[in-house]
Design a protein around this nucleic acid. Structure first.
Lengths: 215, 215
DNA sequence: GGTGAGATCGGCCAAGAGACGGAGGTGGCG
DNA sequence: CGCCACCTCCGTCTCTTGGCCGATCTCACC
């Protein structure tokens, strides 16, 4: 009985590549494709696949949110994060959201097949780089560089291009408090300006691409 | 005689997917894979493929730079931009760099094969969305929203997290001049702050992900 | 030769941003 | 209970940022 896989990625090239590739392994069966987080949630609900290959960066509902929802609503389905982003926040975020593994898109083909089958059995699969990040984060919960929940919220708002005052209004706190949080997170991240912080947030996948400041 | 294709993408999942997929078409032959712009240039020089499938967002040397170099050094090789980014600057940039086409990663499989064969014959291939951007840009060269060369340079520097003073040093101009350019580009883009401008630059792919502000 | 766009600077000014120290409140945890 | 992390807010200070006015200079174009 093959492992039933759902592919969630916003690029059809990636989806078709994965689909065609997994087809070569008789133990793997691609049962569906989703182009965004919302589709992934809906299809996971309908198909109850064994494993969801989840891209974390997708327009609309992002992969981490989708992972949370799927794990909550379809617990028998395991989620394997497969993304090009490798940063503390997204690794930890994906695992906290319920992902059983975290692989990079430059993973070799055979390893990917193995990882999917292992994930279906409930075995944890982490790219070595991702494992390192996770261990570092978990082993040092009071790591001076780890942001608090509020600081992360402020960073997320900051990374949509809001001013301190606007962030205050958005989070229902004073501008002064926002400045405090910004000051703290800049210090923790070793950055010098809110612009650098915004770019950092984008880099680690804290902000979905769809929310980036545009016209 | 098959069309010889070089794949340039930093994600092995995408590379292997494309390779396996193009293998099914006997008229297409994948002669090599490059994981970044520098490799793409080197391999294009060594292999002189008919077509390079070029991702624009790659670490190190980006795809646009690689396209320029390849077109300059290996003129018989056509470059087909294949990316997830769709914005005026990158479309125009790719075409200006010498790309014969611009396709999105969510392009359907058969279309991609057709486009590659057409590109090998020197026929222009543009995704409809990309064509629209290009036409809009070309038809209105003095579009109030189109940035000048210098403004684009300043935006690119701004989007790496530099201050005005640092940008001035980097470009060998005064801080005042930088402020003028920043002011102009903010007005043209309809934005209110440098942070928004930095996010915009990332969104349109002006800045390679590798250069985003980190730690 | 005029015309316009672009690049380069200047002064002035208001607002935002960040650093610094202080301080009160909460809630978990030994 | 005390301790500590976190969230909240305040005042003050310096620096950066961005808008507004202006000005030269170059260069392509008509």
């Amino acid at each position: 009985m093959p492992v039933r896989v759902l592919i969630a990625d916003d690029h059809s090239v990636v989806r078709q590549g994965l689909r065609m590739f997994l087809k070569l392994d008789p133990e793997l069966e691609v049962v569906g494709e989703a182009a965004n987080g919302a589709e992934a949630i809906q299809m996971a609900r309908a198909l109850t696949p064994d494993v969801v290959l989840m891209d974390l960066l997708m327009p609309g509902t992002d992969g981490i949110t989708a992972t949370q929802r799927i794990r909550a609503e379809v617990p028998q389905t395991e989620v394997l994060a497969l993304t090009s982003v490798l940063e503390d926040a997204s690794v930890v975020g994906a695992v906290q959201a319920g992902a059983i593994g975290y692989l990079l898109k430059d993973t070799q083909a055979e390893q990917l097949c193995k990882a999917i089958k292992a994930a279906a059995k409930g075995q944890v699969q982490l790219a070595p780089e991702a494992a390192a990040r996770l261990v570092r984060e978990v082993r040092a919960p009071d790591n001076p560089e780890s942001l608090t929940g509020r600081e992360t919220e402020v960073l997320r708002a900051l990374a949509t291009g809001l001013t301190n005052r606007e962030i205050g209004r958005a989070l229902n706190i004073g501008e002064r408090t926002v400045k405090t949080h910004v000051s703290h997170l800049l210090g923790k991240l070793g950055l010098q300006s809110r612009t650098q912080a915004a770019l950092y947030a984008v880099r680690i996948g804290l902000v979905p691409e769809s929310k980036l400041s545009g016209r």
